[in-house]
Design a binder for these strands. Sequence first.
DNA 1: CCAGCTTTCGAACCATGGTTCGAACTTCGA
DNA 2: TCGAAGTTCGAACCATGGTTCGAAAGCTGG
Lengths: 184, 184
Amino acid sequence: MRSAILRAAAGVFRDRGFADTGMRDIAEAADISTANLYYYFGSKADILYFCQQHSLDRMLEQAAALERARLGPAERLRRMIAAHLLCTLDELDGAAAHTEVDALPPALRRRIVSRRDRYERALRRMVAAGMRRRVFVRGDPALLTRAILGAVNWTARWYRPGGRMAPQQVAQAYADYLVRGLGA
Amino acid sequence: MRSAILRAAAGVFRDRGFADTGMRDIAEAADISTANLYYYFGSKADILYFCQQHSLDRMLEQAAALERARLGPAERLRRMIAAHLLCTLDELDGAAAHTEVDALPPALRRRIVSRRDRYERALRRMVAAGMRRRVFVRGDPALLTRAILGAVNWTARWYRPGGRMAPQQVAQAYADYLVRGLGA
DNA sequence: CCAGCTTTCGAACCATGGTTCGAACTTCGA
DNA sequence: TCGAAGTTCGAACCATGGTTCGAAAGCTGG
């Protein structure tokens, strides 16, 4: 039940945005009463928190798997970007974790931010490793990592499922472009 | 007076975000009473609208000037990206135009979106022109333009003036990276 | 000094939307 | 069948924050 609510909530968050989504909207999407939401979750922020937690866990998993894999820096980063993008476009809630952090109360926000930073560091390690091995040109790894994350997370603002482009295509094109920019 | 209010509002929007900023906050920042705001502007959305209008005008201006200039596609795009970034980081309100469109009522939103699209088309023309002349590798101009805009607009979410990096440095690094990805 | 306009504001208004209340309904082991 | 625990919900509650009101305070030309 909890996960059904989360799925429904994530969908509405994605369509209308967190701020413009009311508890009544979430309840309707989950096909239960508004009051009943509070039997499973303490607050609206709580629901957002668990959405973000879920998608961040998925991303961290994928990052760990790729760091373990035997791959060159360029190919590893390409796959990481593609995975992140698919998580953002396919999964309903992938975007919220990186875009709606400010909506959380301090206690929850700290936890999400710390986890998100862990993910960002993983990505940065991939970028830095490539630079060290001269596969990528020298540069500020933190800055370039943020540029990559920006391009990728921004897709949630314009991409709508059912458009003329499949998530796979977007992922492919972005991964190629963003890695080529590093001078691979 | 109107412009003083706009400046103050833009500052608060940037710091706390549009949703978390109250009329009372704007009034305090502008050093006038809350009620007095309504003598100069019809609503909170109105204030946001004029902020966005202002920064979009600046960006469109710069785009037009660069399209007129005698430059190669790569250098033109590099300067465009740098200019956009400086507008986002230096000017207080440069970010809002691209990040808070959803907060506007339909009538105002249409006007901003149409103007923003005009800007996006200008950028896309630069990308497409470079591809046509084989200065950039082939690809989907619309998609890559959005990737660029994403990376650039995302800076508003993490950059804070007074950090260890000057806007100029960020602009330089981003422009190089994002144009190099096109295969220049 | 006096209309008449512009500008200002304290205090309230009121809709929105997150949240709580108390009761009913369902499930299930004894 | 009984009752306790687990679920569900309609109806209100109430804080937040955008907005309005009516009046007072400046400013200007006559």
